[in-house]
Simulated scan of single mutants.
Amino acid sequence: MANKYPPFVFGQPRFDQSSFQGRLRHFLDVVDPRTLFTSERKLKDSVKLLDDFKKGTLVSGVSNKELWEAQKIKQAIIHPDTGEKIFMPFRMSGFVPFGTITVTGLLLPSQGFAQMIFWQWLNQSHNACVNYANRNASKPTPTSRFVQGYVGAVSAAIGIAVSLNALLQKADKFSPAKKMMVQRFIPYPAVACASTINTVLMRNHELTEGIEVVDDKGNVVGTSKIAAKKAVTQTAITRFVLPAPILVIPPIIMTAIEKTDFIRKFPKMHLPIQAMVCTVCFGLALPASIALFPQIIEIDVTNLEPEFREKTSRQTLFFNKGL
């Protein structure tokens, strides 16, 4: 416990990012929904505290805990590239509270065609906004690029879900009960594939234009398409993994709960229980999935474009993967 708040290092995570455990603890801070209730005054005070530390004008008596908490608040609310506030529903700390609504809707049993389309559209719309809000924004991008990505992702989600459901309805060897059970798992392949496509399309400009690579002092060394490919690939993998525990575990749990006398006696409790199960699974899956890779990626200069070796004498450079 004595090392709970180590000496503060500006701009660096409190936990070791070379291990999954360290990244998990870091992203538990990033997705902490309590930061959604941060007042404007508290945010300004946190930013000022960090600015004073950076300038060397910090008043005496400020603890490491206060500095780490200030950085947690700033990182949860302010985009690292644009310096602007991220709209609350699209922050990583808002992903679970706001996203649980769509996850619960996706898993509702006995959905009709219109319901299925609505929930897939709503889910991918939210995912697209989260991807856009947490992108690497070191380079300006035309809005048309994001519109194209959004349309492509929504079309993919609806197309996959509808196609799988149509195939299921034609499967004569399944009884109605078994069809209903299998139908509950259709959202996963639809959402996983569409979320991956969503990420690639929404961030396609990074692949064509590159992203900024900096040294350990934060100075921009250049723009790299290689770094962009690595950033988008790792984020896409995260988006593919994320829906697995969210859309696979709840149907298994709910199938077991539906067989209990409690649900038979109190059928109106089905929806709130499902929402609670989805929230817990989402809350655990989100930090675990985004912890698969660090947000700030170290890369050897020899693994970048040849011109980087002429621009800097440093062996290791860095770039923001985005979330």
Rank of each mutant, 00 (worst) to 15 (best):
F266C: 10
I226T: 14
A137K: 13
N64C: 07
K44M: 11
I158F: 06
V221Y: 09
E66T: 03
I273S: 09
P80S: 12
L323F: 15
K65D: 07
F240S: 09
V182H: 08
L323D: 05
F8R: 04
V214Y: 12
A256Q: 12
S18E: 11
G152H: 00
P7Y: 09
P97G: 08
K259G: 09
Q169D: 14
A256W: 11
V31W: 04
F293Q: 03
N165E: 10
V31M: 03
L106D: 03
S18G: 14
T238W: 04
G56I: 03
V220Q: 12
G222Q: 03
F10V: 08
C129F: 14
Q115V: 09
G218Q: 04
K72W: 05
E258T: 03
F240V: 03
V103Q: 09
G11V: 01
F262H: 09
V200L: 08
W68F: 09
A275W: 02
P272N: 10
R264H: 15
Y150I: 01
M276Y: 11
D261H: 14
S125H: 11
D215L: 04
K42M: 11
P7D: 10
M254Q: 05
G105E: 00
A244T: 07
N64S: 12
V103D: 05
Y5C: 07
N303S: 13
S313N: 14
